[in-house]
């Protein structure tokens, strides 16, 4: 083989190594956007929380007014579970139409890394346009806006509820 081919192959191989690395990095750029998205979600949540504080007085009467009539529709049901305080603070979970098990257990749909939560602590289940929260006989109890839950209760978006040390809230 000629000297030239060997030299070309030698540098070509080095180039190929770096092409591989740049291919990995370039396609990671899109993947790293997932992290970006999480940050954006938190940012959005923060923005929304601050704006919700301003909007809530205006919104709530409207919600109360239409409250009893909107039991059937599922379109207005909140679709996000946002963790505000606690070990998983800042993360959010998308809710579907299936009930959600909150707890420390491995089987929980939302596994809380919270040592003050029971294995199967509480359950969120959808009904009509609302989510209901119920305690599953947990050791430390479930609290909705500071009040201990004794039976299933509806949770509106913006109402904060606490499981162990984790404070959560539903978002539309």
């Amino acid at each position: 083989m000629s000297e030239l081919t060997i030299t070309l192959l030698r540098f070509g191989f080095l180039a190929l190594l770096w092409i591989f690395i740049f291919a990995v990095i370039a396609s990671q750029a899109r993947d790293l956007a997932v992290g970006n998205k999480a940050r954006a979600a938190v940012q959005n949540a923060r923005n929304k929380r601050t704006s919700a504080r301003k909007e809530r007085p205006a919104k709530q009467p409207a919600a109360n007014g239409s409250g009893p009539t909107t039991t059937g529709g599922t379109r207005h049901r909140p679709r996000n579970l946002m963790i505000i305080e606690g070990p998983l603070s800042g993360s959010s979970f998308q809710l579907g139409s299936a009930p959600v098990l909150l707890g420390r257990s491995n089987e929980a749909t939302v596994p809380l890394e919270d040592d003050y939560a029971s294995g199967r602590h509480a359950r969120l289940f959808p009904q009509g346009s609302r989510w209901f929260l119920e305690d599953l006989g947990s050791t430390n109890g479930t609290f909705v806006q500071g009040q201990k839950l004794s039976r299933a209760a509806a949770v509106e978006p913006g109402m904060q509820f606490r499981v162990g040390r984790t404070v959560m809230e539903l978002r539309p």
């Binding site: 009930p99 359950r123 289940f125 009904q127 209901f132 119920e134 305690d135 599953l136 006989g137 004794s150 039976r151 299933a152």
Partner: peptide, 9 residues
């Protein structure tokens, strides 16, 4: 409220 929620109250 639902078929499941009744008993754990």
């Amino acid at each position: 409220t639902t078929e499941l929620s009744s008993s754990v109250a």
